[in-house]
């Protein structure tokens, strides 16, 4: 029961605690009785596609939206009753670019500082690493920044009042792989300063950068655990299969009676296999007999993406 782990182990109270949170928009159940805790200094990832309910959860925690039922606290404060106090402790980076496009980098930062009644100078140590990369462009209007730089500026603005909790809603969507990696390196440094971070992402590979993750689908949390534990629970044998041509190979793998599912994974296909009935070597021979060239079959460790696809396979 991961939701009560922290309390049971006698740690400090959780920084974020949700119990049976539900939210519905008309006939759409955006959140279905979601419960979880986040401990201080954790990076907690909500991993799932658009429409899974991640933004709804974040907006409830950011005190911008009321849940229909259930309870949520941030730093022990109730999201409904104590919303003013929460807003002083919380930095929120919404999914859509939220800064003023017509203000410069510097003006955006001063504006957010002024709103929270702080100065850029007193918060500077916290954002120095990130803002340092933007400083050469400080006079540039926010609308003229590249995707990666916009994200960095939005992160600076979310940190300007020195929050103890950061809510980052899809901070890396649409951002190139290099900026994504840099962004996660920044989060790792913030974590060292005991800032608690909840972050959502549709990129499954980013899950490995989190201490714990929730796999989210259709408003429900499917699993809440450390990424490695989720991987170790993958219930089937998983093989990587290569061979030319790849698209035909995928279709033939799906027709094979000992293969339960096959999906393209970059330069190889991943197949879940009834391994009691066939060996990688036998499958390789089968495929060569069908005329495939450069066939290679080997057993592999699943990735989070394999796990997610397995957990959501029947829907």
């Amino acid at each position: 029961m991961p939701a009560t782990q922290g309390i049971a182990a006698g740690h400090q109270p959780p920084v974020i605690s949700c119990r049976q949170l539900s939210k519905r928009y008309g006939s759409v159940e955006a959140l279905r009785s979601v419960s979880f805790d986040v401990e201080r200094g954790e990076i907690f990832g909500c991993i799932g596609p658009d429409g899974a309910g991640k933004s709804t959860l974040f907006r409830i925690l950011a005190t911008l939206l009321r849940a229909d039922s259930g309870r949520a606290t941030v730093e022990g404060l109730d999201v409904q009753k104590d919303f003013r106090a929460i807003r002083r402790r919380l930095g929120y980076m919404p999914g859509r670019f939220s800064l003023y496009q017509d203000l410069s980098v510097e003006e955006n930062l001063s504006f957010f500082a002024a709103i929270f009644g702080v100065t850029v100078r007193e918060s500077y140590p916290l954002i120095r690493d990130i803002y340092g990369q933007l400083e050469p462009f400080k006079a540039r209007r926010a609308c003229k920044l590249s995707g990666g730089m916009k994200q960095k500026l939005a992160l600076c603005c979310a940190l300007i009042h020195k929050p103890s909790v950061l809510l980052l809603d899809e901070p890396t969507t649409g951002v190139d792989p290099i900026s994504r990696r840099e962004f996660w390196e920044m989060l790792a440094r913030l974590r060292q300063q005991s800032i608690t971070i909840i972050v959502s992402t549709p990129y499954m590979d980013e899950a490995m950068r989190c201490d714990r993750i929730a796999l989210v689908k259709d408003g429900a949390f499917l699993q809440i655990e450390a990424p490695q534990s989720i991987i170790s629970r993958f219930p089937q044998a998983l093989w990587s299969v290569q061979g030319d041509p790849m698209y035909g190979l995928l279709k033939d793998l799906r027709r094979h009676e000992d293969i339960m599912a096959a999906y393209a994974f970059g330069d190889a296909h991943h197949a879940t296999v009834r391994s009691e009935r066939i060996t990688p070597r036998q499958l390789g021979e089968n495929l060569k007999a069908l005329g495939y060239l450069n066939v290679e079959v080997k057993e592999i460790q699943p990735t989070i993406e394999d796990c997610y696809m397995h957990l959501t396979a029947d829907s």
Partner: peptide, 10 residues
């Protein structure tokens, strides 16, 4: 394919 789930992406 931005933002869609892994199976839909494939």
């Amino acid at each position: 394919t931005g933002g869609v789930d892994p199976a839909t992406r494939r």
